[in-house]
Structure formats: structure tokens, C-alpha cells
């Protein structure tokens, strides 16, 4: 069991926090199973075709990559410290992301679902609001707008 857990943690550490190519949701999920986890929660943040009444053509994400990678790793570590997680991984796209594609994925695994759900919300909330990543919306009318994702903003968990 110890060897098993060690290898899974190593796999978790090897997943890059940023990707300039499409995220492989199925492959990431395949790495998130754990013999001690009865719950796996997967959040996929996907590009929708409208925002605040405007038709979205695509999104483009810019990042300060070194800091974003470090911050996402810290957020994952903080989640591990707060909840008894077996696996926690997150990956965010950079560059142009088409409608329906995944912009960010967070997967949490734990013995029971409560911790996995809570930790997943915590991780995505902090990534959206703290990591050095920015979204630019490109609309079908040719205009663009930076940021503007924050209609949610419940208090930080």
C-alpha cells in the first residue's frame, strides 16, 4: 500500500499545471483513481458560446507561467493540508481555447465524497482568483474583452 501511494503521488507531481495543447480529460481522470478513494470529483471548466449577452467566438489565456505553476502547486498542497485527499490534480490551458473545449480541470479523490467536493471547489476558486492566468474573450462581432469572469465570487473558502 505504501509503495502504491508513493507512485500515485509521484504521478500527481508530474502532471504539469499548464498546457498549451488541449487538455486530455480522460487521461487525467485515469490517473486520479486510488485504492483508498471511494469518491473522485472531476470539474471541467469549459468554454461556453456566450457571456453577458455577447456571442463568444473563442477564449485566449495568457499566463505568467513560472508563477502560475508555483501557485497552482501551492494551492494543491494547501488542499492536501485541509482535507484528507488521496489525489488532487489541476491543469489549466494557455493560448487559444475553442468553444466546448476544457479550459481548466480539477480532479480530487478522497475516501468519501464530501471532502472531494469541498476540496475541488476550493482549488478551482483559488486558481481562478489567484493564479497568474488571464482570460481574453473574443466575440463573434470582432471585439474582445480581458477578464470579466467573475460573476461568482462567493467568499473564499
Amino acid at each position: 500500500m505504501i509503495r502504491s501511494a508513493y507512485s500515485l503521488q509521484a504521478a500527481e507531481a508530474e502532471i504539469p499545471a499548464l498546457s498549451a495543447t488541449p487538455l486530455d480529460v480522460v487521461a487525467l481522470l485515469a490517473q486520479a483513481h486510488h485504492p483508498e478513494a471511494g469518491a473522485v470529483v472531476l470539474f471541467s471548466g469549459e468554454v461556453r458560446n456566450h457571456n453577458q449577452g455577447q456571442d463568444v467566438d473563442y477564449l485566449e489565456y495568457e499566463a505568467h507561467e513560472a508563477m502560475a505553476e508555483k501557485m497552482i502547486a501551492e494551492i494543491i498542497n494547501d488542499a492536501h493540508a485541509k482535507w484528507p485527499l488521496k489525489i488532487a490534480v489541476a491543469q489549466h490551458r494557455t493560448g487559444k481555447v475553442a468553444i466546448g473545449e476544457t479550459a481548466v480541470i480539477v480532479i480530487t479523490s478522497s475516501a468519501h465524497r464530501h471532502e472531494a467536493y469541498e476540496a475541488n471547489q476550493y482549488i478551482i476558486h483559488r486558481i481562478k482568483h489567484e493564479a497568474t492566468i488571464w482570460k481574453c474573450e473574443y466575440f463573434t462581432d470582432g471585439s474582445k474583452k480581458w477578464g470579466g469572469n467573475c460573476s461568482c465570487c462567493p467568499p473564499a473558502l
Binding site: 471548466g45 489565456y61 499566463a63 505568467h64 508563477m67 502560475a68 489549466h92 479550459a103 481548466v104 478551482i124 486558481i127 481562478k128 482568483h129 489567484e130 493564479a131 497568474t132 492566468i133 488571464w134 482570460k135 480581458w146 477578464g147 470579466g148 469572469n149 467573475c150
Partner: peptide, 10 residues
């Protein structure tokens, strides 16, 4: 010096 506007990932 890097200057970062508020994050808007996700």
C-alpha cells in the same frame, strides 16, 4: 518588475 492585473483564469 512584473505587473499583474486581477487574475481571470478558469
Amino acid at each position: 518588475i512584473c505587473i499583474f492585473p486581477p487574475s481571470s483564469g478558469g
